[in-house]
Design a protein around this nucleic acid. Structure first.
Length: 607
RNA sequence: GCCGGUGUAGCUCAGUGGUAGAGCAACUGAUUCGUAAUCAGUAGGUCGUCGGUUCAAGUCCGAUCACCGGCUCCA
């Protein structure tokens, strides 16, 4: 019997997964998508002659085109446009490249009355090229394109959505209407693309957050403020416990600092000058103004400055799970990914200049250890160097940048360099992780800071008795716990490894006769530090199993008369299927060991 | 903040100006059951919020809040 298709069931592709080429990896696909955007523009101007064209590039999965059109495009319009595009493709219209002078191009654009094209022309260097599409329609374009629309597959494209977009990406400019589309070489690729979109939807942490009762965001409390429900809170606690353990092992100390502080602190730090738009407003308390903290760094800096420091103390490594609040504009919040209150796994290292390399290497090792525990094993590393507008002396920048490179090379991690991409106060390393469906997420960041030690006049006493400025390193591994949690939920699709599951084992009595034995087993599990629940609903086994699977419980333990008598359970694993009969003693020790080792599943002795 | 869309039961959704609905979940009862849904019953709503039009508003209009898809932003 085929497996029933259920919301909670794993969706497996029927055959081998189809490889989906990215535009940047396939010259032919690039031509297809580029031409497809011209076909879209022609279709729109055929149906809506008053629409003005602007730009229409390819994207990694398709293409879009921005139009200036007074009436918003509707879903029905999209359907009509798609139909018109189909007709254009079927006519096998040629696309021809024409090279012309600036004057000729300008004359042609004026004849068509396309104001945006005129603006684009002003920024182009000769030779100017345009591409025709059939008779009469053309667009300023560098290409390349397919030779004729017969190379486009009328069954391998779709229009996906309409969105607002600003002319030249500037919110002070006119708002245009962007039509997004996707296009592929074959209908099979389109189907696979749709399947992957479905898969991303299935993994959406906002969906899973509701289904698995992990967290919520409450209207009455405000947008972007997270309520962790018991199951989500338990997972977060497990993450935090592991994080603390790893930090102590890496010779960090932990800090707790206030959530608010006198506004002057943010004047000293400089945040008020260039960050105030992202801060919650100040509050008046007694005679002083207080500020909800958008960052933890000034607090760690104050802690450092609380007494005189010797060079013998350095490096100092202080970490804090610090909850910060930042004002995000309405309309930008997104589940747990972008919120107004979140917890950073922040740490600051104060060290001597010649300790930079070792310290950065230590951070890289700790980062790898922590991320790989959540099955993120593929990284993309970026090194950002000194920008034009920056503070600090050349020698310090060079020393610091060399320290970062030195650490990356000792770690053996390949990286790309973003010249001039650093912050004004120091160079940095950003780490992106790849998830189970190939998406990249930037979580970890390591930044050197020459600014804050200066502003707060941080010092240590050197060997010769002189006062020197320490080097400050900011680093976060998860970045934001909320956001990392969301990424992790989507990476696992809600199927948490055993050690992270809020409910690890659900005990399912076949009938009420097994309840007593099950209750006894539950207290044994609790004593062993294993999280379990006992279903007393009296429902039939089939239903209990269905519910357990839908709630993605890692282990279901069926308990009937047989098991009660033999002191065992019949185990069913969400990842590995039926595990057969397991003695209670074995279950207890295997489950406790799995927790201890932070394992994905139990290691049971073979039967 | 900007463009477009959506707010009806815990969840998914139906309801085209005239008595607020379904499925699942919940609760109660019966059933005591062996690996993805037992049966029956009960309860659950200021239709996001505020204002307006109308004899009458879930439905039409306005404002507002939130969410969704984007844009912009994210030292």
């Amino acid at each position: 019997m085929p497996a029933p298709s259920l919301p909670g069931a794993q969706t497996q592709p029927a055959s081998a997964p189809i490889d989906l080429p990215k535009t940047s990896q396939s010259p032919q696909l690039l031509r297809i998508r580029h031409s497809m955007s011209h076909v879209l523009a022609l279709a729109v101007q055929t149906l809506f002659p008053e629409a003005k064209v602007t730009i229409g590039p390819w994207t990694e999965t398709g293409f879009y085109y921005d139009f200036d059109h007074p009436e918003p495009f509707t879903e029905a319009d999209l359907k009509a446009i798609k139909k018109e595009m189909g007709k254009i493709i079927a006519r096998r219209l040629p696309l021809e490249r024409i090279e012309l002078s600036r004057g000729d191009a300008e004359a042609r654009i004026r004849a068509q009355n396309e104001p945006y094209k005129l603006e684009i022309l002003a920024g182009l260097v000769e030779p100017i090229t345009l591409y025709t599409l059939g008779e009469g329609w053309w667009d300023l374009c560098a290409g390349p394109h397919v030779a004729n629309t017969g190379e486009l597959n009328g069954k391998a494209f779709d229009l996906e959505s309409v969105a607002g977009a600003y002319w030249r990406g500037d919110e002070n400019n006119a708002q245009l209407q962007r039509i997004y589309g996707t296009a592929w070489e074959t209908p099979e690729q389109l189907a696979e693309y749709r399947r992957r979109k479905q898969e991303a939807l299935r993994r959406d942490h906002r969906r899973l957050g509701i289904d698995l009762d992990l967290f919520s965001i409450e209207d009455e409390a405000g947008a972007g403020l997270v309520f962790w429900h018991p199951r989500g809170a338990r997972i977060r606690l497990l993450i935090e416990e592991f994080w603390r353990e790893a930090h102590f092992a890496a010779d960090y100390e932990l800090l707790y600092t206030p959530h608010v502080a006198d506004l002057s602190l943010w004047q000293t730090s400089g945040h008020l000058d260039f960050y105030s738009e992202s801060m919650f407003g100040p509050m008046q308390v007694d005679e002083r103004q207080f500020q909800l903290k958008p960052m933890n760094c000034p607090f760690h800096v104050l802690t450092y400055a609380s007494r005189l420091r010797s060079y013998r103390e350095l490096p100092i490594r202080w970490a804090e799970l610090g909850t910060v609040y930042r004002y995000e504009r309405p309309g930008v919040m997104h589940g747990l990914m972008r919120v107004r209150g979140f917890t950073q796994d922040d740490a600051h290292i104060f060290c001597l200049p010649d300790q930079i390399g070792d310290e950065i290497l230590g951070v890289l090792n700790l980062t790898e250890q922590i991320l790989s525990t959540f099955d993120f094993n593929t990284y993309e590393i970026n090194l950002s160097t000194r920008p034009e507008k920056s503070i600090g002396e050349d020698g310090v920048w060079e020393l610091a940048t060399r320290g970062l490179i030195d650490a990356l090379e000792r770690k053996g991690w390949a990286y790309t360099v973003d010249e001039g991409g650093g912050a004004f106060y120091g160079p940095k390393i950003d780490i992106k992780i790849e998830d189970a469906i190939g998406r990249l997420w930037q979580c970890s960041t390591i930044q050197l800071d020459f600014n804050l030690p200066e502003r707060f006049d941080l010092e240590y006493v050197a060997a010769d008795g002189s006062r020197q400025r320490p080097i400050m390193i900011h680093r976060a591994i998860f970045g934001s716990l909320e956001r990392f949690f969301a990424i992790m939920v989507e990476n696992y699709a809600g199927d948490f490894p055993f050690w992270l599951a809020p409910e690890q084992i659900r005990l399912l009595p076949v009938s009420d006769g097994a309840l007593e034995f099950a209750a006894d087993l539950q207290s044994k599990l609790r004593a062993a530090g294993v999280r379990s629940s006992l279903d007393r609903s009296g429902e039939r086994l089939g239903k209990l199993i269905r519910q357990g699977e839908q709630q993605k419980i890692p282990l279901l333990a069926v308990i009937g008369a047989k098991e009660a008598e033999g002191g065992s359970v019949s185990l069913r694993s969400r990842r590995d299927g039926d595990l057969g009969t397991v003695a209670v003693a074995e279950l207890l020790s295997a489950a406790a060991a799995a927790n201890q080792q932070r394992a994905a599943g139990l290691n049971l002795p073979s039967p």
